[in-house]
Every structure is written in C-alpha cells, then in structure tokens.
Amino acid sequence: MKILVAVKRVPDPNATIKVRPDGTGIVTDNLKYVVNPFCEIAIEEALRIKENHGGAEVVLVSVGEQVCQEQLRTGLAMGADRAILVLQDGDVEPVIVARALAKLVEQEQPDIVMLGKQAIDDDSNVVGQMLAEMLGWGQGTFASEVKLSEDKSSAVVTREVDGGLEDVEMPLPAIITADLRLNEPRYASLPGIMKARKKELKEIPLGDLGIDQSVQVKVHKLSPPPERQAGKKVETVQELVDLLHTEAKVI
C-alpha cells in the first residue's frame, strides 16, 4: 500500500501577519513557516494507516520553493518514508498544484492521496477536489474519521457536514482530505528527527513534469482588515438597550 500526502509550507498560524503597504503580498521578513496544520493531520492519518494496517509507504509531496524542504523534513521526522519536492518559485495557484499532483500520481501509483482540507494561508480548499476530478477518483473531503476495509479495497470516510456526520464509501484509489478533528498529530521524536536527514528527498523542477502551467487566477491586491473601532462606554442599561436598538440595530 502506498499513500501520497500533500504538504504545504505556510506562515505560522500564531504569527501576526502584516500586509505589505503596496498590497502585493504579506511582509515575510522574520516570518516563521510551518507545515500547514491540516496537512500535518493528513500526514498523521497516513502514518496511522501505515501502523494499523500492516505497513504502507508514506510519500510526501510539496510544490514550491527550495525552502519547502524544511516542511518535508518535518514530515519525514514524524515518520514518512520519503519526499518529493516539485520546485517552482513564487506562488503556485491551486490548479497547477493539482495538475502536478495528478502527474505524480501517474508516476507513483498510490492507493490513497491524503491532503489537508485547505491551507491556512489562502484558504482555497480546492486542490483535493480538483485532483479527484482530474484522476476520476472518488473523494472523501472534510474527513473526521477514515476506516479502511479489511482487504484495503475501499474506504469509509466520515465527513463533518452541517448539523451532523455523513459517511461516504469509495473504492480505492481515492482522495481524502483531512479536517481538524481527524486526529491529533504527533510530535516528531528525537530519533525520528535525526533519521529524517538521511531519508530520500527528491527534487523535480515543475517544468520537468510537462504539465499545463498557464495561470488562470491572478492575485490583484491584498488589503488588511479594517482597523477595529474603539468601543463605547454607556452609563445605564437603558442607554445600552437604546443604542442596541437605534445604532447597532440588533434588537
């Protein structure tokens, strides 16, 4: 069994993000980068499948700049077997990531492709779905539980939907995208970290994959959320009720 896991490098969700004054992007100086938290959950799930179903090869893939290897090493330290970095400078739009992954699926022939449901930087939430469409595979998105059949020919994915849970079954190979409650990712152990540097990390320039790289969506401008206005102090409850009625118009 082979599981391909997509890994994205994103700014630390706990960092304070500032938009550049010209609106072309965010200020990246001294910004700390981590594995996208949903991708981390995807890696963890792949490792658990490997541990609980008699072994599997877990292969990580990232599309981006050279520095993305830091995040791949983190995944290798957690226990993944090897990694592939598809090199491309600058932002890569989701459809190109999906095409690159589709190409790698052709080469690697995995039984499952695990992804995070979305990246916490651009919140696109499309790569898994587009990849399923490109490959013609079944997809279980927003997974909060993954169960494989005894013979590993199919999977039941529990999805968190409005007002409850939905179980969907699909034959393998399939696409699964991880939601927040799927699992709690492990810390990389110290021996795991030390072993990670010896594991294979293959680099492939995006251009070598021979995929359509035409850009369909361009980011025009980023703007920070409006600054929060100072609140108002009121003297009496009556005044508060009046303001809620006349100004805030909530009652």
């Binding site: 830091e70 090493r73 983190t74 330290a77 810390y187 990389a188 110290l190 970290i193 540097r197």
Partner: peptide, 15 residues
Amino acid sequence: SESQLMIRDAVRRFV
C-alpha cells in the same frame, strides 16, 4: 544544524 533546529522547534512546541 537543521536537525538541531527541528529538535528545538519540536521541544519548544511541547513546552
């Protein structure tokens, strides 16, 4: 080293 920084980050997160 890169591995040492990774150890630092992991332990720091735990702490």
